[in-house]
Design a binder for these strands. Structure first.
Ligand code: FES
Ligand code: FES
Lengths: 146, 146
DNA sequence: TTTATAAAAGACCTATACGTCCTTTATTGA
DNA sequence: TCAATAAAGGACGTATAGGTCTTTTATAAA
């Protein structure tokens, strides 16, 4: 109902890289796909997209892999949404009638507006760093499928 | 991002029927599809589903069409969600990691939990009748595409 | 300068949400 | 009892999210 698989994989992927980065090493796709239990090739596609969008970096070849750059930890969740599914979704009507409009509100407008705005605010404020409890020994577990 | 097209069509469809019902007449698919500007055959499929689920009734043949039954106005939004997309969605993790679980929370769990619960509460409490402003002359406009 | 490694690129496949169409069944009034 | 009407049933088509595979490019070390 809420967010796409793609967004979830993207977030979990970059968080994994950030976490491992604290150990001072790069992360490769095989490791990520295995640890996070996500489809390797699909993850590759998403990681590549994030690199192209500049929120992290990668190097090819031996000892290569994904690593952080100066933007990564400052990246806001809303940017990840934008990259993976586009933000317009935050201002379309929940009934997909049109662009959500308080002048011509749909029957669910009142009940949804504050929730949606709260969510948007949350996603606009929170950075990846905010989500990174590097002191949590179970952090990896929290981003991996059970 | 939020709800499916199917849910939106279902809600708008039943609200239209309810609104017209106050005028004491039944509603037919052709009229609904035209007024709401939704694909006629797809709407048919959804209306038929709602009838089968018992939240409204229909009669075939001349002067037939859709009309309310004793359950319609008391129907809660959550039921409509259940019928059109299944409610499990309300207790799966937003990162689709698993069943959402406070004992093993994902990095977005804290920020999403209250929003999702608020939404669930909203959908569990609100009935179709609550959404029906039959005194609003622009009601139809509010459920039709611009 | 070759070989191994690992991401980038992009073609391709699959499942599902969304949508269309045709035939059947029930109802009505002439 | 027939013709017209309108929903029910169900097959079928399309678009997109999700997922797989193969080839190409960059990098590192021997
Ligand atoms: S108009 Fe529908 S959510 Fe605002
Ligand atoms: S565990 Fe992810 S939302 Fe609760």
């Amino acid at each position: 109902m809420f967010l796409s698989k793609t967004f979830g994989y993207a977030l979990r992927g970059v968080l994994y890289v950030a976490y491992i980065d604290k150990e001072g090493r790069k992360v490769q796709l095989d490791e990520m796909a295995e640890k996070l239990k996500v489809p390797r090739h699909f993850l590759a596609k998403i990681m590549k997209l994030m690199v192209k969008e500049g929120i992290m970096q990668s190097t090819k070849g031996p000892y290569g892999g994904f690593s952080l750059n100066e933007h990564t930890l400052k990246t806001k969740l809303i940017q990840l949404v934008r990259i993976t599914e586009g933000v317009e979704q935050f201002n379309t009507c929940v009934l997909s009638l049109r662009k959500c409009n308080s002048q011509n509100p749909c029957p669910l407008h009142q009940q949804m507006l504050e929730l949606r705005d709260a969510m948007l605010a949350e996603f606009s404020a929170k950075t990846l760093d905010d989500l990174l409890n590097s002191d949590d020994p179970d952090f990896i577990k929290s981003i991996a499928t059970a």
